[in-house]
Structure formats: C-alpha cells, structure tokens
C-alpha cells in the first residue's frame, strides 16, 4: 500500500524520507524554487517553495512528507506571495535582465515570468556590490547573488572543495571565496567544477561562453520553468 499526501486535491504518492518537494517533483507537480536542487542537501532559505500543510506554512523542500498531509501549492494566495518574495530578491540585488548574459537561462528570471511578475513592486536597494573577474575562466558578479548557497553546497558536496561560503548578517549577507586574498583566482576553483555551473542566476558565470547560444534560443525563451524543472529534476527525485 503506497502512502500518499494530497497536493491541491490530488493524491500524490511518497516514500518515507521524502520531502514534500521530492514527492511533488517525482509525481510531476511543480513547486517554484530557487535554492533547492535535488542533488544537494535542501537549504530552505529562498522560501519560494512555501506551501500550506494542513493550514501551516512550510518550506516544501525541507518539510518531510507524511500521511494525512493536505498540501496547498498552486493557489492564488501562495503565488501572489511567491511573486512578492521574488520581487524582494530583485530589489535586493541589481538585476538588469536585458544586459545580463544569463538572460533566458536564468532561473530567477524564469520564476519571475512563471509567477507573472511585471514590476519590482518594492523600492530598490541599489546595493553597492563588486565584481570578481580575477579568475581566468570564471566570473563572479555579486550584483546578482541571491544567497541560495547552491555554489557552496556544490563545492562541498560534489567537488570535494570549499570554494564558497556565505558571510555577513541580515541585509549585509554576501558571498565570499576561500582564498587568502579573497579573490576567486587564488582559490582552487576550476571551470569544470559543478560549483561554477550551478548558479541559478548570473552571479557565477563561465567566461567566454555567454553568447554561444543566442538570445531567443535559450532555455526559458520557449519553455516555462515548470516544464524545464520537472523534466530535469523528476528523475533525481524519483
């Protein structure tokens, strides 16, 4: 007898140890997310995957699925709030999509499209953020970092290194790299590292590859993020 939870009225099977996100993705139900990636320990910080479990607000990526859960996911209220949380990420950093080489391949931008975000709503912080172009093959543009820690986790869990970390407190959070100089060139990061490719935004980019795929032919130029995400992640969760 398979165990099930209910998401938006539909019965979704799950196995012990799965989170709500795991169960949903395996069953082809998209829950918006940015800091979550099925190959890494869930983080639960971006709060886009917020769902209501029997009325209680929970992060789907960290909350264990359990019998008797009635989960609300794709509702107007939740999507409205998710849109505002996305807007918060936009005003916190400096995201100029038209001039960003990640445009069309950017998950932040794609989630914003999915949630029908048409403006920034909140006043911009105009934060002063630096760039680190010191590394031969990899560039950091701190303007676009959303502190999802995917690069931190990928470096530790996949590359067996410790290149990245998040430092600072509150609104002063920032990405730091593990070198005495504080520069990326002095770390042991290589362009082939998973950590150099995992960034959901344009904060970590591989140099000299930005426009190999022209704008208009990029991932989210033709497909919504729910479709792309489920196609690539369903297997990992299954």
């Amino acid at each position: 007898m398979t165990k099930t939870i209910t998401i938006d009225g539909n019965a979704i099977p799950f196995e012990d140890g799965q989170t709500i996100m795991d169960a949903a993705t395996a069953a082809g139900v998209y829950i918006p997310h940015l800091c979550h990636h099925p190959e890494y320990t869930p983080h639960g910080s971006c709060k886009l995957c917020t769902v209501r479990v029997n009325g209680r607000v929970c992060s789907a990526c960290t909350f264990p699925a359990a019998e008797g859960q009635d989960v609300l996911n794709n509702t107007k209220d939740l999507n409205d709030d998710r849109q505002k949380i996305t807007q918060m990420l936009f005003v916190e950093g400096n995201h100029f999509c038209p001039s960003c080489e990640k445009t069309g391949n950017c998950q932040l931008q794609a989630v914003a499209y999915y949630l029908n975000m048409l403006d920034d709503h909140f006043p911009h912080f105009y934060a002063h953020r630096e760039m680190d172009a010191s590394h031969h093959d990899v560039l950091i543009d701190h303007n676009r970092c959303i502190f999802c820690t995917l690069c931190v986790r990928a470096s530790q869990q996949k590359d067996g290194k410790d290149v990245f970390a998040i430092s600072g407190r509150g609104i002063n959070k920032h990405l730091i790299v593990n070198s005495k100089s504080g520069q990326l060139k002095d770390t042991d990061l290589e362009a082939s590292d998973q950590a150099a490719h995992i960034c959901p935004t344009g904060a970590i980019l591989i140099k000299r590859t930005g426009y190999t795929v022209p704008i208009g032919e990029r991932i989210y130029d033709h497909k919504q993020i729910d479709e792309v995400s489920l196609a690539s992640e369903a297997e990992d969760h299954g």
Partner: peptide, 20 residues
C-alpha cells in the same frame, strides 16, 4: 532589521524594506 540573520528572503529583505 539589524538583528535579522539574513538566512531567508522574507526576513532578510523584508525587515529592511519594513524599516525603509
């Protein structure tokens, strides 16, 4: 806003927006 740890988006950004 000063004491927010900055881990999650709603508190990190939200407490600063609230202050503003």
């Amino acid at each position: 806003a000063h004491e927010s740890c900055g881990f999650c988006t709603p508190c990190r950004v939200g407490t600063s927006l609230l202050r503003q």
